[in-house]
């Protein structure tokens, strides 16, 4: 993982291990940080926040954060907020399924082609939001 820049937007998924929604959020994050917006986004381990790692806590407090949760328990959003982070936008993978009724996205282990389409859909929304936040941050400076 590259080092964080001042205007980076952090994209943090829950990576829920029990359902396909967690994997979709995780893969959407990689799609954003590796392909769609690598120059303005980064991710960090949510488990580090759970641990209370000082560097991770400082990172979520000093950068805009976008969380991607699999389900309504919103673990990523809650953990970032509990660490004092700024959650600028919270996505839920389950909500994206409204546009894909009847889709079979795969499992918590592997995505189907339909799962990857949903992942890309979420990733594009996240990348747009990251661009907006990044522009706002630059305008303030």
């Amino acid at each position: 993982m590259r080092s964080l820049k001042e205007n980076d937007v952090l994209v943090i998924p829950c990576s829920g291990i029990g359902k396909v929604h967690g994997l979709i959020g995780r893969e959407a994050t990689y799609r954003v940080t590796d392909e769609l917006a690598p120059e303005r986004t980064a991710t960090l381990c949510l488990a580090l926040l759970v641990k209370g790692d000082a560097e991770a806590v400082q990172a979520v407090r000093s950068h805009s954060c976008i969380t991607i949760d699999g389900c309504a328990k919103a673990c990523a959003q809650k953990n970032v907020a509990m660490a004092g982070g700024r959650v600028s936008k919270a996505f839920q993978a389950a909500e994206a399924f409204r546009n894909y009724r009847g889709a079979k996205p795969g499992s918590a282990t592997a995505l189907t082609d339909e799962g990857w389409v949903i992942t890309r859909d979420i990733a594009e929304s996240v990348a747009c939001e990251a661009a907006r936040l990044s522009a706002e941050s630059e305008a303030v400076q």
């Binding site: 291990i17 029990g18 759970v50 328990k73 919103a74 673990c75 509990m82």
Partner: peptide, 11 residues
């Protein structure tokens, strides 16, 4: 069995 690690704080 398993559980999502972040649920320990959020759950």
């Amino acid at each position: 069995v398993t559980l999502c690690l972040p649920l320990f704080l959020a759950g």
